[in-house]
Nucleic acid binder design. Structure first.
Ligand code: ZN
Ligand code: ZN
Ligand code: ZN
Ligand code: ZN
Lengths: 160, 160
DNA sequence: CAGCTATTGATATGTTATAACATTCTGTTT
DNA sequence: AAACAGAATGTTATAACATATCAATAGCTG
């Protein structure tokens, strides 16, 4: 699998290409329109395993001559998030490309405060303790945010 | 126990009083200064089982003649969060009083999108699947954000 | 092509958060 | 008590994140 959890990827060029292809397929199969602005936004997010603020994305879009006002970036990001091609990292008010688009999943993130790398994994939160608490309380979970902040292996090493 | 998980509390007046007393004791035992602004900020958060934005808190502080500029609210909120007397709800960019201050815990929240009620519970995330993934990747978790959004029993009923 | 909807462009504004520096308060040393 | 140091607060300004609104355009449908 191209996207195992970890703080390095063997071949990021391939990683990007694969994700983009999956996104194209995903949109095609659902009649979603991956327009130039949206596609470029996804490419911008895929450039690194980090989360980018909407204004960072906007700056890159502007560099590409694709709009320079906030709504342009926010609309594209909203589309990607709703389509399941990107996620918002609430703890950072920033956005990151999904590492396994198309697969129905409940993402969880490991965020390094040293190098800002974001690693996506899955959670089975709804099956765990919080899910049990929610069911016990009669609470219907619709969306979850699971984010852990800390230090990745490389950054832990560096500060040792 | 006064603070069981759930979307009602039997006697909120008592709930507030208890929490405030716990907070006082907590600060006293650690040499932390629960100054008038900080205490009032905590009271404001304790008024309801909801999360309040910093500017909402600020408005209440201003009503009480205690400062009307953003840093006043943010500093008090930062103090409370660092002291473990309040938590930030990242999904709402808002703050809520801790329901069991002093106890070392990793909070998790159930947030109702109908009535905005926030219920705090615990998570053992670090022992669960994400914790395992983190250890496998050599990632050292320092802080976690676990928030579930959905509908509480009352609001589910109402929309039925 | 006429009409409809989705998307983009553009302007303005609203909301959340912090930087920077002055002042006041609190406890400690002399 | 006066001097001092550090913590807390007051104040101004600005940075960073996000949305409302309306006009223009592109893409599809009958
Ligand atoms: Zn994902
Ligand atoms: Zn790192
Ligand atoms: Zn708590
Ligand atoms: Zn509710």
């Amino acid at each position: 699998m191209p996207h195992t959890i970890g703080f390095q990827c063997a071949d990021h060029s391939r990683c990007k290409t694969t994700s983009l292809a999956q996104a194209e397929a995903h949109c095609a199969s659902r009649g979603l329109r991956l327009t130039p602005v949206r596609r470029r936004t996804l490419e911008i997010l895929l450039a690194e395993h980090r989360a980018l603020g909407a204004y960072d994305v906007l700056a890159h879009l502007a560099d590409a001559g694709m709009g320079s006002q906030p709504p342009v970036a926010y609309r594209a990001l909203d589309f990607l998030v709703k389509a399941g091609l990107a996620h918002k990292i609430e703890a950072l008010n920033a956005y990151t490309a999904c590492m396994h688009p198309g697969h129905d999943h409940t993402p969880a993130f490991l965020i390094c405060r040293g190098c800002q790398t974001v690693a996506e994994t899955d959670t089975t939160l709804a099956n765990g303790r919080l899910g049990a608490a929610a069911r016990g309380a009669g609470f219907v979970i619709e969306h979850t945010v699971v984010e852990a902040t800390g230090l990745c292996p490389a950054c832990t090493e560096e500060r040792a």
